[in-house]
């Protein structure tokens, strides 16, 4: 069994709170759902697990067997027909690249990267193909996949008729829909890197995304301006409507200049929780 479950009955109500967790996408996924039917809860969590695992097979930059890796190997030679999900993810990434003034760039891991690299990615809607106009392009969806998975999870929850849920992908991408059993929205806490104080944020039909180089010696965000790992900024956390926006925005804020930040935030109508 890959998904783990714990249940708690909600007082005198016939409902149960289900806590389900599993590992996927090189991190852990935790979710809280509640309903009267344990079967429905369990089934929904399993569907979400299956979906996350499927997306990992599709969009992982690190797993050689993923669809994305096959694209990275072959798309410079000729247009490659791709799945609906991969097409949609790349398409969204390109849109978000524009919307973030170039700060969110899924091609930063390409060889001889420059700010024009991403323009070499060509999508063909009719044929649902992708083609790399430059030979050394590599798309890396790592900073995006979890947000996309949250949106897929949201659709599964809606289909199951579950209106209240909290899903965390590794703590850095959180989707909160509806309400906690005993309060409005869901309250999430995170420690600021600098002084260790807790910061709580209440989420209601929103996503919380955090990006940053919090762990010493584990830099992973590359600036499209310089092509190098960013220094200085610890974390950027934002609250957005969708997980995909959240991922692009939090990553962008880590690499943006102060002026760019202001403009990007306005474009997304998002709330910036912290930059430290």
């Amino acid at each position: 069994m890959t998904v783990h479950f714990l249940y708690k009955k909600l007082g005198n109500s016939p409902k149960h709170l289900q806590y389900a967790w599993f590992s996927a996408m090189h991190t852990r996924v935790d979710m809280a759902l509640y309903h009267a039917s344990k079967e429905l809860l369990k089934d929904t969590a399993c569907q979400i697990y299956a979906e996350v695992a499927r997306l990992e097979q599709t969009g992982s930059f690190y797993s050689a067997e993923s669809e994305l890796c096959a694209v990275n190997r072959h798309a410079a030679a000729k247009p490659v027909a791709i799945s609906r999900d991969l097409y949609r993810m790349v398409e969204l990434s390109l849109e978000l690249h524009k919307k973030t003034l170039g700060c969110f760039d899924v091609t930063v891991n390409s060889g001889s990267y420059d700010s024009q690299t991403i323009a070499g990615v060509a999508l063909e809607k009719e044929a649902q193909t992708i083609f790399y106009r430059r030979p050394d392009i590599k798309i890396d969806l790592s900073g995006f996949l979890k947000g996309y998975a949250l949106e897929q999870a949201r659709a599964i929850l809606a289909k199951a008729g579950l209106k209240d849920a909290l899903i965390s992908m590794g703590g850095s991408s959180v989707l909160a829909i509806g309400n906690h059993p005993f309060g409005g929205g869901w309250k999430v806490d995170f420690r600021t890197a600098k002084n260790g104080d807790a910061t709580a944020v209440r989420l209601h039909n929103r996503c919380l995304s955090t990006s940053g180089n919090e762990i010493p010696g584990q830099k992973h965000i590359i600036s499209p301006h310089t092509g190098k790992y960013i220094e200085g900024i610890g974390r950027a956390a934002v609250v957005t409507e969708t997980g995909t926006e959240g991922e692009a925005l939090s990553t962008s804020l880590c690499v943006a200049t102060a002026r760019q930040r202001e403009e990007i935030l306005q474009r997304f109508k998002a709330e910036q929780i912290l930059i430290d």
Partner: peptide, 15 residues
């Protein structure tokens, strides 16, 4: 029946 904040958010958890 408490509604409290959940202390888990932050940059991504990795194995």
């Amino acid at each position: 029946k408490l509604f409290d904040a959940l202390p888990f958010a932050g940059t991504s958890w990795a194995p």
